[in-house]
């Protein structure tokens, strides 16, 4: 009898652990970027510990640049969008831009981090880097679920997807010194709103991009040959 009770207890613990483990995987996970473009001579192909795929121009020394200007990231995703996603195309670019600016300022990696508002001319000058980029994928996904015979209650909706591609430009010469591409995907669980899923993903994208920029500013990123 005691053995049976112990087994039952153990089973409950295992079941609960499985449920908790399932819950803990909620949220966006980093994925390999899909078809990043880069520039003619610089393609983001090298896996980076934080920022997805990157490529850094040979001879580039970020220490020579005390200032960086963060330009707004337009959404270039041409896929069909829901009304909610269309709203996100307006709110996410400045949100992402501000996330980068605030996080980068907190690192003190650059003496000056400027925010370039949309519609204003891109800044240029010596010792200045310009971070430009695009949001090439922005899909909020949906939480459609259904009872599927033999599979149980399954998620059928699209996953949340977010992909960014960035270029680090020497503001004086206009030459692209580094490119990155990163992607996040998450099953849309219905526990959060699409907006909060997407925002979380862009927070993570900004955090990881800033980690990359911080390492770059310290000369800790390998250059392309």
């Amino acid at each position: 009898m005691a053995t049976q009770t112990a087994w039952r207890g153990a089973l409950i613990v295992v079941a609960l652990s499985a449920v908790c483990a399932g819950c803990s995987t909620l949220g966006a996970a980093q994925q390999v970027p899909v078809s990043p473009v880069g520039t003619a001579d610089l393609k983001p192909t090298k896996p980076d510990p934080s920022a997805g795929l990157v490529a850094v121009r040979s001879g580039f020394d970020a220490k020579k640049y005390p200032a960086i200007a963060i330009v707004s990231f337009p959404v270039t995703d041409s896929g069909a969008m829901s009304k909610e996603e269309a709203k996100l195309t307006v709110s996410i670019p400045p949100y992402f831009q501000l996330q980068i600016v605030q996080r980068l300022r907190a690192t003190n990696a650059f003496a000056r981090v400027d925010l370039v508002t949309e519609g204003t001319a891109a800044p240029s000058g010596e010792g200045l880097l310009r971070l430009e980029g695009r949001i090439t994928r922005l899909a909020a996904g949906d939480d459609t679920s259904a009872w599927v015979p033999f599979s149980g209650y399954s998620r059928l909706g699209d996953r949340m997807k977010a992909q960014i591609e960035t270029s680090l430009v020497d503001a004086q010469t206009g030459q692209v010194m580094a490119v990155t591409a990163d992607r996040r995907e998450a099953p849309n669980s219905g526990f959060q709103t699409a907006e909060s899923y997407v925002e979380e993903s862009f927070q993570a994208l900004a955090r990881d991009l800033v980690l990359f920029l911080e390492r770059l500013s310290k000369g800790q990123v390998a250059r392309s040959n």
Binding site: V90, S91, P94, Y95, L98, V101, L115, T117, G119
Partner: peptide, 27 residues
């Protein structure tokens, strides 16, 4: 002075404020 431009951006894009525009559509 450093944070104010970002806050304006946030007030418009995230919180929904709409400030007066020039003919070109800029603030």
């Amino acid at each position: 002075v450093v944070e104010a431009p970002g806050r304006v951006l946030e007030l418009e894009s995230r919180y929904g404020c709409l400030f007066d525009r020039t003919h070109e559509g800029r603030i």
